[in-house]
Design a protein around this nucleic acid. Structure first.
Lengths: 333, 333
DNA sequence: TTTATCTACTACAACGTTTTCGTAAGTTTT
DNA sequence: AAAACTTACGAAAACGTTGTAGTAGATAAA
């Protein structure tokens, strides 16, 4: 079933049918009705490739993210997908698995017009962005969210990582912590640095001197990270507070505390960025900084569609910052 | 940059260039080398729409699932994506949000050849499958996973829901439960029914009579479901064991127990199907039946690709069953 | 030497749309 | 009544590939 067949059935030209289907003013109402009903009868559907080829538009966007097994990216995708569904767009998903090589390969797949726009969140390992600059030259609209490339002139949607980290650190200080460790992930990642800067600033504001050895760079696999946390907590002058920059490090901390028979929050208070809905049910319930993940997906997708639908909107090159929420629970009591 | 331009630069015909790019034996090695290096130099990439239009293949599959904010579908997508990446396929994602109307709309989008194959898991609300039969007629390869349509002759990948439910129920009985409630989701869903049947069979095997009022159908929203669980646990002859068929109902149960000051596992033991990695950290740690989600994604994607790549493989119309694991923790001690 | 077989290329017709440019009627304006 | 416009349609040229069929020229077989 193609438009040619449909046209023959209707004894009309292909052009007329095409125009009728797209509700052109050049076609009379009766003809449109005839065409539409015949199309439904034969259940004709336009061929997306022919259409995309001709119009040079794919009605598709790509979402490039590190992983999906994660309480943050899940709701983000949800938000993106909901906007896409409203706008009649399709969503391709690509996972980098925190691997820069994979990220480069994926970006190179997207150079050829397969998608009208790209939403992305960088991998932990991404240390330079030349692959993205290259994409930039092809003029494919793009939006960064959460894990952004700070220096690129592309719209960015983030949360208030710096400020919420200050608030979180102050919360720990207020609840009695004096030696607070920070579990960081990649130093490539803007969010990791922002969060760390907030942590350090809060310490300074409260006359506590930031110590380098209290900043643990957890860039390895799960087992390696756990070993670093174990070492940290086995020291004689172990920290009395732990600020994890991502959820998986807080989970690891819980496991290590269990192993070392350290009581949370008595021996050490724990707090993390997390969107897990099981945080309130953990033992003890976990204090979190929770990001508006769904809204972030919706917001960044909306920006992308504005960019896609009318080019040259350079005034959109701003940064959108959404606020995270500090939810105090028993792990910092 | 298209193949025409590239051909002109090389002073070759379009056909020659096309064949050289696709490593045809008709082209000499020197010419191939020239073409490849020139293509790289001008960074030419083949237009996917022209190619798909001509070849009637999209190198794309669709994944249609109820939601993504969920510890089960996350790893499944991961598995699917990893196979797709190996095979050079693209992955479109569509969320039904457990809404049959949306599912129908999405399926109708996929009728037109946009994808070479479809992987799907039904929505809770899907009560009939006529929209899928229609798709079946178009001869688009399809694989069901987890939430399958039992009666359709399409390859299906599931876990051993019936058997693992028997094991889980027996575990509760062995640990002293005599009045075990089952929290079911949609009665449309094969998995829900299988799980319930396993539960009932285990009761019978142990001479416990299944009671209808101990089967709670949680088909509403979160608040409604909680209300049903609250009512269940407020009865004078409340159950001493709860078997939740999905994780969200176990979480709700935890919350209600907290509210009603009921101790898990002393007052009531709780067990659920779940893939949450925080289950061991909950208060108390949660006994789960854990499905091999990642493997399920990989397995079903592999089957789909076999179907896509060589049609007529009707011997693949089997059902693949993977085994879930019962992980005993403190909520059933 | 003639005929058959390769080798390495090219021309061209699809694939199914969309859109520009015509153009016959019919309608309105002068 | 001629000129100018509208209305409703159709022809045909893209969009960028791929694969079939064809063809020179070279080599091998008869």
């Amino acid at each position: 079933m193609n438009i040619k067949h449909l046209a023959k059935e209707l004894e009309l030209s292909i052009s007329t049918v095409s125009k009728a289907l797209r509700d052109s003013h050049e076609i009379s109402t009766q003809t449109k009705d005839r065409v539409l009903s015949k199309a439904k009868e034969l259940n004709y559907e336009v061929n997306p490739f022919a259409s995309s080829l001709r119009k040079q538009k794919s009605k598709t966007i790509a979402v490039v993210i590190p992983e999906v097994v994660n309480d943050f990216f899940g709701p983000v995708i949800n938000g993106i997908e909901s906007v896409a569904q409203e706008k009649g767009y399709h969503v391709l998903i690509y996972l980098t698995h925190e691997d820069m090589q994979k990220e480069v390969a994926i970006i190179s797949l997207l150079q050829n017009g397969r998608v009208d726009g790209i939403m992305m969140s960088l991998s932990e390992q991404t240390s330079n962005t030349s692959h993205l600059e290259e994409l930039r030259e092809k003029d494919i609209p793009m939006v960064f969210f959460d894990r952004i490339a700070e220096h690129m002139s592309v719209p960015k949607v983030t949360t208030d990582d710096y400020n919420s980290s200050i608030r979180a650190t102050e919360h720990l200080i207020r609840n009695g912590c004096r030696r607070i460790a920070f579990l960081s992930i990649s130093q490539n990642l803007s969010i990791s640095n922002k969060r760390m800067n907030g942590y350090q600033e809060a310490l300074r504001m409260h006359k506590l001197t930031p110590e380098d050895k209290l900043i643990i760079s957890c860039v390895g696999n799960d087992a390696e990270n756990k070993q670093m946390i174990r070492k940290l907590l086995q020291q004689k002058d172990r920290p009395d507070g732990i600020f994890a920059s991502v959820e998986k490090l807080a989970i690891a901390t819980y496991e290590i505390c269990d192993e070392l028979k350290l009581n949370i929050p008595k021996d050490v208070k724990v707090l993390t960025f997390s969107n897990s809905y099981t945080a309130p049910l953990l033992n003890p319930s976990l204090t979190t900084i929770t990001q508006p993940a769904y809204e972030m997906g919706r917001e960044s997708a909306s920006i992308l569609f504005k960019l896609v639908e009318k080019r040259g909107h350079n005034f959109l090159l701003e940064k959108t910052v959404l606020n995270s929420e500090l939810i105090e629970r028993n792990s910092t009591k």
